[in-house]
């Protein structure tokens, strides 16, 4: 009887392990594991595997003052640019994010705020959401590169803070961007 119970338990554990593995596979490669991820080696036997709420990308509590704009040259050089109405990180912009990932590994205690910005075309409110998407796209990329998501926060200014006050494509291309600033140590 004891044996049967044990068998049952191990079958159940196996099922748990398998489903945990599947949940792990389903996640996007650059997901931010919230706390003790889907690991199987936690203390104390089989882990109660919840049906994994999608916690991908949950934001840490706010920290620091984003209006101070502490932006050393290396961070300024890594400003990421985007195509019109797009929050996709272009391949040409990835080296900047890879350098940011390196910077954050060298400075593991810093909290970085990613500012999302848009060009002047389109309504302010939609651009506020689009700017946030751009900042979040960078955050997701960095988390996928191993940066701790809890050190990355976002703010969107939409089209309110252009880098270039001009009105042509040259200015617009500069204004569709994500910038990195330090908001905490």
């Amino acid at each position: 009887m004891n044996t049967r119970l044990l068998t049952k338990i191990s079958v159940l554990s196996l099922a748990v392990v398998v489903s945990a593995g599947m949940v792990g596979c389903k996640k996007k490669p650059h997901a931010t594991p919230p706390g003790p991820g889907p690991g199987l080696e936690g203390a104390g036997g089989p882990i109660a595997v919840a049906p994994a709420p999608d916690t991908t990308g949950i934001m840490p509590p706010r920290s620091g003052d984003p209006t101070q704009r502490n932006q050393p040259p290396r961070l300024a050089a890594n400003t990421v640019h985007f195509a019109f109405d797009s929050s996709v990180v272009n391949p040409s912009e990835r080296p900047k994010l890879d350098d940011m990932a390196g910077y954050m590994r060298e400075n593991p205690n810093q909290i970085i705020t990613i500012e999302g910005h848009c060009d002047e075309r389109g309504t302010a409110e939609y651009n506020r959401a689009l700017g946030e998407r751009r900042a979040q796209a960078c955050r997701e990329y960095l988390a996928g590169a191993g940066v701790d998501g809890n050190k990355l926060q976002t703010i969107s200014y939409g089209k309110e803070k252009p880098a270039d006050l001009g009105h042509g494509e040259e200015a617009w291309a500069k204004n569709r961007r994500a910038e990195f600033i330090i908001t905490g140590q």
Binding site: A129, E132, T154
Partner: peptide
């Protein structure tokens, strides 16, 4: 309301 607290607007 639009919130991005869960990682996306």
């Amino acid at each position: 309301v639009i919130l991005s607290k869960d990682g996306n607007p």
